[in-house]
Amino acid sequence: MNLLSYIVSRLLQMIPVVIGVSLVAFLAIHLVPGDPVQLMMHGRATPETLQAAHAKLGLDQPLLVQYWNFIRNAATGSLGTSIIQNADVGKIVGERLLPTVLLLVTSAVFAILIALPLSIIAARRSDQLADHVIRLLGIIGFAMPPFWVGIILMLFFGIYLDWFPISGYGRSFGDRMYHLVLPSLTIALFLAPILIQSLRAAILDVMTAEYITVARAKGLGPWRVLIKHALRNALMPVTTILAVNIGWLLSGAVVVEYLFSFPGLGSLLVRAVGQRDYPVIQGLSLVFAILVLFVNLLADLSYMLIDRRVLKA
């Protein structure tokens, strides 16, 4: 199987999931007990405004037609209209997409920067003191809720040391990176323990492989053996773990964005839920799910680039 047909078959496999996901997002607004528009207006809508709003949201049409319109619009990037903000949901969500993606990327980078050296030390000193200390730190790190870690980091780095801003999102690229430090560190501290645990196990596993002995028999030094022959193989399961945990990463991002008043998808979701802005909630749930599916697709593709054996199967 070549690269292209692998990608195509992988995309085809995604179709039923995407249909399911869109169905869930579509039904969200219809499962609301009572009239969603009435709820959005806090029960103060007159019959005329109610009817106008229904027409605007397309709620007066048959369910199947509504679903078809939803899919068709979603494919062109339009996700309906927010009555409360009186704006296109696609546009509202689109503005928030990039900051969240940026936050995810920087969080993952921080998490890897923390996890990689620690897991290498833990694996090379397995069952020794350093390993036990790292394992204990991992357990404590995992048990710390992100919103609490965020508050501690705010207190220490933001207020006590006054090194980093504790809320918002800058204007220039450098300023944005500066604003991203504390939120992404917060998420990274939640993600790193999971990574350390799996990376340590993967390195230990790979180090027992015969090709590691062969590499040493070639006269390679321990670092070259570790980085070229062990780490690359150990990183493969980690790619999967990062992808599997993208859901948790995004869950953490929701809380952390809210805490740091960061203008991303997560804080938008919390606000939309508070305002009962159902079209926005609907659009957001679809975007979140597509994001997860997309990251998983990327992970699969990168896995294939690292290990060509996947193509054979």
């Binding site: 492989a209 015969e210 090709y211 002995t213 062969v214 590499a215 040493r216 028999a217 070639k218 006269g219 390679l220 030094g221 321990p222 022959h229 690359r232 193989n233 493969m236 690292i306 290990d307 060509r308 054996r309």
Partner: peptide, 26 residues
């Protein structure tokens, strides 16, 4: 160990039992 690395492969080499495990798959 560093001098031993110079000897491995250059002066003394080894052929292994199971070829499929002896090469790195990636």
């Amino acid at each position: 160990e560093t001098e031993m690395q110079e000897i491995r492969g250059a002066d003394i080499a080894m052929v292994f039992q199971n070829p499929m495990n002896a090469l790195n798959p990636v």
